[in-house]
Design a protein around this nucleic acid. Structure first.
Lengths: 340, 340
DNA sequence: GTGAAAGCGCTAACAT
DNA sequence: ATGTTAGCGCTTTCAC
């Protein structure tokens, strides 16, 4: 350890300490170009001794390359997004790229701000949740001249590439399953979020498919804020009381579904005999519940991986073989709360 | 919208489009210095029309100022850390600083790597979880010449500032409560993570306090990987079978505690009559459980807020009034699973 | 209120 | 294998 520097160390300091030109020091520190083993050693020793940390700002400006990938998601509290993130991280770990996360809170204006902010660092690519963006955001993404992958959703027109599932299809599949199982009086519970387009699309796919079978949603309820588990519980209690003849409850996410499940079991209600239940996402948490909630896997980790791979490929000048849209298939997990 | 540029736009482009010098354009875009309203308007129009996004790389290099705060945490999957993050974000939103997150997966080597990487962007400050860091990491933090706040824990020597709770104290308080309630045969369940120093310290505080009362942990079990809820369930089943006379189960986090609670209730075991239960963290999820699990609040959001405020103050050249160490008090929430 | 010059710390490109 | 030169796109400083 050496003493505290007021001024951060520069390449020049390492150069002087090692008696090697700045350029060669730079080469050693980046493992670029041919440098003799002896020189390399000298430089590495000096750098380590001084505690030199390269200045990426300067490096990036000079090389016009920034190894950052902007990842823009609505929230970190949702479990869903951290999982997408790990898919991205683990894939980028094989490259020299690094994810940087920005959070929008489901607000288009904030998305715009975050995007602007991130683009001003000139990242090598953008991975952004959703297909719905403000005009300004779309313009920025197009103008940026870097690979863009929109994730989570495939119901719409991607700017560049896109990886996700069709939430309309997910809603439809669930509806088909429910109809096939013979349920008729269906209640829906979800979030009060007009800006959660994916939840909206699932709901649309769901209701339309029911409609074709001559079924209408018998009751619905929306929540915002608070513990999702507790809200699922409350909403379920309220709805069961208000509409006692319901025989199925479809939840827009697993967490409220879990709350509902716990409530019904406590009440001694027969699940799935009297009331069937389903959520959405396929979160790991469900494994520990008294009964496995029926759900639909949103392929979160895989979406992250595929998106990252696209950015990495494009960044390496390679082609992306699968074309601009990758639609993954949402898989139903019937669990124990949906009779068949 | 204009056409796609191969070359990103520069200040010069805006300057030419508006007929104003680069320097004045720069002033307008940063709201710095006096610029006439007319000129300002011209510049803003041109910038918007072109879709100019400033290059922060160049700006940062020239000004030697980067408005980024490096936030280094072990994991995003843990619920705990996203909450700390929101505390940080919401506080930094009142400043011109921005958090950038790095994840270490509880690995010192990865921490070192992430730290190095982040410091090479010359952030204005560092917020990092824990007080235990490799020699190299400590050296980097000291050398960086920027404010450093270590968070979550106060049991140890901070490099610069530190905000958190004493996990030894948290363990001790819980033990005292359990002893006072008259429980005697105590089992412990936790994670198999030698590198989770905070969990370790809680355990130490816990066992030492029990020891003083002449009580020894009657059984223990550790897990790694998988759904925490399911693991809590499994471990609890195993432990209850192995050591049937246990009258209290202390879990190192709420999620496994919740799993245990669900299991015991299913088995019709009287909680907290026959067996008392407690977890740690005070996660929101607990609100939706059939019974409120006893827990201890780790003050996560507040820690984030306070840490961010310290960085912001130091960055603005202000003093931090509270001194280098801020120890928050972990508050017990007895819930319904700890008889009193 | 506005502009011109210098330079932030690196690396690309070109010597040697 | 190593060194030299120029300049990345801004902002600081100083002049007008």
């Amino acid at each position: 350890m050496t003493n505290k520097p007021r001024r951060p160390l520069t390449l020049r300091d390492v150069s002087e300490a090692s008696g090697v030109s700045e350029m060669t020091v730079s080469r050693v520190l980046r493992n670029k170009g041919d440098v003799s083993a002896a020189t390399r050693q000298k430089v590495q020793d000096a750098a380590k001794l001084l505690g030199y940390v390269p200045n990426k700002i300067a490096g990036a400006l000079a090389s016009q390359r920034v190894n950052l990938v902007a990842v823009i998601i609505p929230s970190l509290g949702n479990m869903v997004f951290p999982e997408v993130l790990s898919g991205i991280s683990e894939t980028l770990e094989d490259t020299d790229l690094q994810p940087v996360v920005g959070v929008t809170d489901y607000l288009p204006e904030k998305e715009e701000k975050v995007l602007f902010e991130m683009l001003s660092w000139r990242p090598s690519g953008v991975i952004i949740a959703g297909l719905e963006h403000s005009e300004a955001s779309q313009a920025m993404l197009r103008q940026a001249g870097i690979p863009v992958v929109e994730i989570m959703d495939t119901d719409g027109e991607p700017i560049d590439h896109c990886v996700g599932i069709s939430h309309r299809r997910a809603g439809r599949k669930m509806a088909e399953e429910i109809i096939a199982a013979g349920y008729k009086r269906i209640g829906f519970m979800g979030t009060k979020m007009p800006l959660d387009h994916r939840a909206r699309k699932r709901f649309e796919g769901f209701t339309r498919t029911l409609a074709k079978a001559g079924i209408e949603i018998a009751d619905q309820e929306f929540y915002s804020g608070g513990s999702a588990l507790a809200k699922g519980r409350e909403m379920t209690a309220k709805m069961i009381e208000r509409t006692p003849d319901l025989d199925f409850l479809y939840y827009s996410n697993d967490m409220i579904g879990a709350g509902g499940l716990l409530y019904l079991l406590e009440q001694g209600i027969d699940v799935p005999g009297k009331v069937g239940l389903a959520g959405f996402n396929g979160v790991e948490l469900l494994d520990g519940l008294p009964r496995r909630l029926a759900t639909m896997d949103a392929c979160r980790r895989e979406i992250g991986q595929k998106a990252a791979r696209i950015i990495a490929a494009l960044n390496a000048g390679e082609d992306v073989p699968d074309g601009p849209v990758i639609a993954l298939e949402p898989i139903l997990a019937a669990g124990d709360t949906l009779r068949r």
